[in-house]
Write a protein that binds this DNA or RNA. Structure first.
Lengths: 164, 164
DNA sequence: GCTAGATTGTTGACTACTCAAGTATAGCTG
DNA sequence: CAGCTATACTTGAGTAGTCAACAATCTAGC
């Protein structure tokens, strides 16, 4: 039944599909490159890096596991295991919450801060390189704005600065 | 050392970072939604779906493993394992190559074709829903075009139609 | 103040990959 | 045609996450 007359349905929604497929591919390719670099140069995965970044920017440099899960779009158990690694490496430690015995905060350590700053140098430069080689400033803004409209539970996800 | 005067480097490259972080989040959120749907409704992962789609569109409905790997941005071993599952389910089968004994083709079966068409109905509608609710036609084109400029080894990745 | 239900977090079993090493075949070069 | 290198694929071991079941704690309603 191949190569027949093509039925309608699949052919009218090209623009959405095109965008989705391009997004899938771009993510796979960029992630592969950036992650490999981060792992080789600093022994951090992209999610390790994001955890450190979020903690560094948080009040008191600490965040509940639930909030980290929401920010990184991971499940609670994913966060538990991610933090296991970072704790073992000494970049993060635990702290109890006075007002709620259920929560354990993740707190970034001095070593974690140092690591984040080291990693940021190369990581930010790579990202910049990959994007600026392909887009003008205006295009970057457009791309960021459009992507930002897609679902994502973390509303403040766009400030990527690294506090000292 | 926290909350000091902020050092320059990290703050001048916001547009690239913003785009990258938005891409990461959008990918995580969309993947989560679409994949969950596809798995629940049809028992296929996104990569299963993409394999069937690429095979359906290929000449003779077959592709070398190497070529699938390149199209899906997976490693050779990832493809072996992905195809294992699809073979076990009967959606794909193997075929030898006459001119090169090293290659085994993956060939989509009739059952695979049927499955692909079933899955396409809901999957395409979901994608469409997610995107069209947020973007105008022109914006979709822009988004697709911009994302398409990012690295991705498969140049012909943008035609997503499902052959009958 | 007790109980029902929601929230926070961890764990065990699984999945979907990756990487490195190995096998088999192809094809070129002298 | 002998030997080398490159290509196609598979396999074992490891990693990073998921989901479902669980324990502990909090909170609101009666």
């Amino acid at each position: 039944m191949s190569r027949q007359v093509l039925r309608g349905q699949a052919f009218r929604e090209r623009p959405s599909l095109n965008a989705w497929v391009s997004l899938l591919r771009a993510h796979a390719a960029l992630t592969r490159t950036l992650s490999a670099e981060l792992v080789h140069a600093h022994g951090l995965t992209i999610n390790d890096y994001e955890v450190l970044l979020h903690l560094a920017r948080a009040d008191d440099h600490r965040l509940r596991r639930v909030d980290l899960a929401e920010r990184l779009l991971l499940t609670a158990s994913g966060i538990t295991r991610l933090l296991d690694g970072l704790e073992r490496a000494g970049y993060v430690c635990k702290a109890q919450c006075d007002s709620d015995a259920r929560v354990t905060y993740a707190v970034i350590t001095d070593a974690g801060f140092t690591k984040l700053h080291e990693a940021s140098d190369t990581h930010l430069a790579s990202i910049r390189g990959l994007f600026e080689e392909r887009f003008s400033g205006a295009e970057l803004d457009t791309l960021g704005e459009l992507l930002g409209r897609l679902p994502s539970t973390a509303p403040d996800a766009t400030d990527c600065s690294v506090p000292d």
